[in-house]
Amino acid sequence: MIETPLLSVTSLHKSFAGRASLVGLLQGKPARRLTALDDVSLTLGRNEVLGIVGESGSGKSTIARCITRLEKPDRGEITFAGQDVWQARGAKLRGIRKDLQMIYQDPYGALNPRMSIGRAIAEPALVHGLIGKDGARALAYELLDRVGLPRSVAELTPRALSGGQRQRVAIARALALKPRVIIADEAVSALDASVQAQILNLFGELMRDLSLSMIFISHQLSVIAHLADRVAVMYLGRIVETGATADVFARPRHPYTAALLKAHPHLEARRSQTPALAGEIPSAYAIPEGCRFNTRCRYAETRCRLSDPPAAAFAHGHEAWCHVLPDLETHTDI
């Protein structure tokens, strides 16, 4: 890609202090540190959906929180439209905050239970001075139309709405600032299947109509397959494979990606006799030496326990971080 990406994350590191044990404190041992992100780099192009997939504790939400300045990274750089997100001050910072909007899993937790929906939607735009008080109602109506809710919803409080309707409200409020990037963290995970499809279609419409870019974080591979142009697969604080979603899902090169695809409950196939992956994700307090996946990897060799694998590059920007790069099951018609 010659075009500079809209958003780029370079060598991001983030760790959190763990709770120290009393005995440890008395012995003068430092508190353990949990590694959430370890040298993560990614880019987001204009009008592109980047999917981030991984299991709990893989660090996918921490990336979102570092980009939106909710967590300060230990090291690394986040650049949005040429601006360093963490260096920006004043008007530039306000501009970045307006342009990067987040949507969470639980819209009920994200909405003030006492505030009318109309006010909740218009408030960010009021705060940012994009509209005056008299413009609030018109903006709320416009956005309710946009997300497919009746205008009468503006007078209600969140309690009166279903989960799917609340998520539409959260999306409307994120759109109020005319953002350039939406970061959705498990935004459809709590919804019933029939409602989830409606919200996925809404995201599709928004991408088509509003020249948005989106980072879509999910543990559901099928949701990523549906929405994302490119995907980054994370394991224990690091990206292990990335590329166009079609390439990565049809021809995974990292054993972890292949295992995730195999473990996904398919409608058509009967389950196999053995699980796709043995063992559990190791503690983020004690990340394995070498390749962090080696403790669960059936292809692991000596070198996998000794050194971090380098990136192996394939066609169309498809990369995998694996020493062995074994022949894996391909999924031409998953």
Partner: peptide, 26 residues
């Protein structure tokens, strides 16, 4: 029928082709 059509599948369709939906909520 509606439920099965509304579920996104693993095969990448490309272009975010709209899923069939069931109107409303349970």
């Amino acid at each position: 029928r509606g439920l099965l059509a509304a579920i996104p599948r693993l095969e990448v369709s490309g272009g975010r082709r709209p899923l069939q939906t069931i109107a409303g909520a349970p």
